[in-house]
Design a protein around this nucleic acid. Structure first.
Lengths: 117, 117
DNA sequence: GGTATACTGAACCATTCGGTTCAGTAAATC
DNA sequence: GATTTACTGAACCGAATGGTTCAGTATACC
C-alpha cells in the first residue's frame, strides 16, 4: 500500500526536474560514484555537485556513505514507487476523461509485459 | 515510440513538484474549471492561479480556451506519457541493481491488472 | 612531517518561483 | 449606458535554485 506524502512528492518531482540530476541517477544505475567522479562527468565544481547530490538524497532517490575522504553515492532505496503511483493515478483520471485514448493504456500494458519479469 | 526531450521533462516534473498544481490536475480530472473556480478552490488570487495554470499549460498538462470572458481549463492531451516512461526506465535501472526487490515490480503489475481494462 | 586529494561550509550572485497588489480591458447583465 | 464579472499585465516582494569562489578540515601517500 503506497501512500502519498505531499512533501515527499514535492521533493522528488523537484529533484527530477533538473536534467543534470536525472543524468546523475542514470549514471548511478550501472555503478556507484564519488562526488569527484560525478563532478567531472558533469563539468561542475565539487561544491556544485555536492548540492545536486544533496537534493537527490533529500528526495530519497540517492544515498551516500563517506569512507575515508571519499563519499560514495548510490541509488536510494525508494525507487520512485510513490511517484510512479501518483502519475499512474493521474493517467487514470485522464483516461477516464478521454476514453478514445485507450490505446495509450494498452501500450503501457504492452511495455509492462515486454519487461518480461 | 516515446522520445524524451529534456525541456519537456524539465517542464513537466517542475510542474508536478508543487502540491497546488498537482491538486489542480486532480480537480480537472472529473470536470473542467474556470480560473475563478480554481482560484476559490485553492484560496488564491486570480493572478496567482493564472500563473499556476500557465505553468501546467507550458508543460502540456493542461489546455485552456477563452470563451467570452471565461477561460476554461481542462486536462491536456499529453497525459504524462513521457514522464511515466522516464520513471519506468529509471525503475528498471534501479531494479537491475537491487534484484531482491522484484516484489515491487510484481506489485506494479498486479495494480496494472487491477485496473481491469 | 609534508604534500596532495576529497570533500565541506560560508558567502555571494543572478535568476526563477510563488505569491501579492493595483490598474487596466473586455464581456455580460440590468 | 452603467455596473458587475472574469480575466490580464506590470510591478513588486521574499525565498529558493543553481551555480560559483575561497578558505578550511581530514585523510592518504611519500
Amino acid at each position: 500500500m503506497v501512500q502519498y506524502t505531499t512533501a515527499r512528492l514535492d521533493a522528488s518531482f523537484a529533484a527530477l526536474s533538473d536534467a543534470t540530476r536525472r543524468g546523475i541517477l542514470e549514471q548511478l544505475g550501472p555503478a556507484d560514484a564519488s562526488i569527484t567522479a560525478l563532478a567531472e562527468r558533469f563539468h561542475m565544481t565539487l561544491t556544485g555537485m555536492r548540492k545536486h547530490v544533496g537534493v537527490l538524497e533529500h528526495a530519497g532517490l540517492v544515498t551516500t556513505v563517506k569512507v575515508g575522504r571519499v563519499r560514495t553515492c548510490k541509488l536510494g532505496l525508494s525507487g520512485l514507487q510513490e511517484e510512479a503511483a501518483w502519475i499512474e493515478r493521474y493517467r487514470q483520471l485522464w483516461a477516464a476523461r478521454f476514453d478514445e485514448l485507450d490505446n495509450v493504456v494498452e501500450e503501457m500494458k504492452r511495455k509492462e509485459n515486454a519487461n518480461g519479469r
